[in-house]
Amino acid sequence: MHGLVNRAVQTFVCHTYGAERWATIAGAAGLDVPDFEAMLVYEDRHTHAVLDALRRELNRDLNDILEDLGTYLVSHPEVARLRRLLRFSGVTYLEFLHSLDDLPVRARLAVSDLHLPDLVLREHATGEFSLTVGPGIPGFGSVMMGILRAMADDYGALAFLEYHGRSQCRDVISIRLVDVSHAEGRQFELGTPAG
């Protein structure tokens, strides 16, 4: 598993539950070094062990934890970078949804060995979508739930999301876009402030 994925789990736990909690989880997962490097690739078993230890330590459903992780990745000030990169995908939440299919390509342009699961968005009726999340990263569907929810807030859109579970290694999420400009949303300028 790419270090960026493992690192995301680590920073999420550290910022949300504290560094000590992370040390406990890393210990329970049997990590030799309790620190993932974002730009290295690790064996998948480490990721599985960490997620398992995380679920036990927090005593919560893993899908719920991973959804929080998705929300964290977009909304926590410490990781503002990902939110910015996602906002490049479209000017409105609707455009963002329609660009989700390109997300793995975008990720690979940024980090050539980062392979995200395939994403397929289907529009069933006006404002009614389903997103199919392909295999590759365990629990990525739940992470996407959190990301989609947080990005709706970011764009100021009102959307209802529902996780439809997993079949044949694919997660399906239904999205009902009620109002594209429900709230103000956060400002997004293409340029980053100097310095």
């Binding site: 730009m39 970078r81 910015r84 990169l85 490049f88 975008r106 940024a110 340029g191």
Partner: peptide, 11 residues
Amino acid sequence: MLFLVEANAAA
């Protein structure tokens, strides 16, 4: 292009 510039800077 701006996406790439920012993503590459982060990487």
